[in-house]
């Protein structure tokens, strides 16, 4: 998956979980928990939404890699369908 598609999927998912956050205003270095104040249930719903839209399943051991908006976009881009094609 290219970065642009990954970014769109991540932004859409964050929009669903935290509709009050305007990502146009946030740097992509924003941390999901500390800066966007997503709790563990929000986070679970976020990666669940992403899994449904992109097919990217984030196993628990990779949670540390997806702590920021950018980290999540990169992760989805690297693991999404079509990666390496």
């Amino acid at each position: 998956m290219n970065e642009q598609d990954a970014r769109a999927a991540v932004r859409q998912a964050i929009g669903q979980v935290a509709p009050d956050v305007d990502l146009d205003e946030e740097a992509e270095t924003a941390r999901l928990r500390q800066d966007l104040e997503l709790d563990s249930l929000d986070f679970l719903r976020l990666i669940e939404t992403i899994a449904q839209t992109t097919g990217v399943d984030t196993p628990e051991r990779d949670y540390a890699q997806v702590g920021t908006v950018k980290g999540l976009i990169d992760y989805v881009a690297a693991h999404g369908r079509g990666a390496g094609e």
Binding site: S40, L41, L44, I47, E48, A51, D57, T58, P59, E60, R61
Partner: peptide, 17 residues
């Protein structure tokens, strides 16, 4: 928890809470 979560889809995973 890590062990049981490994075999589960995201929607069925547990959180420490």
């Amino acid at each position: 928890m890590a062990e049981v979560n490994q075999a589960r889809p995201i929607s069925a995973r547990l959180v420490p809470a």
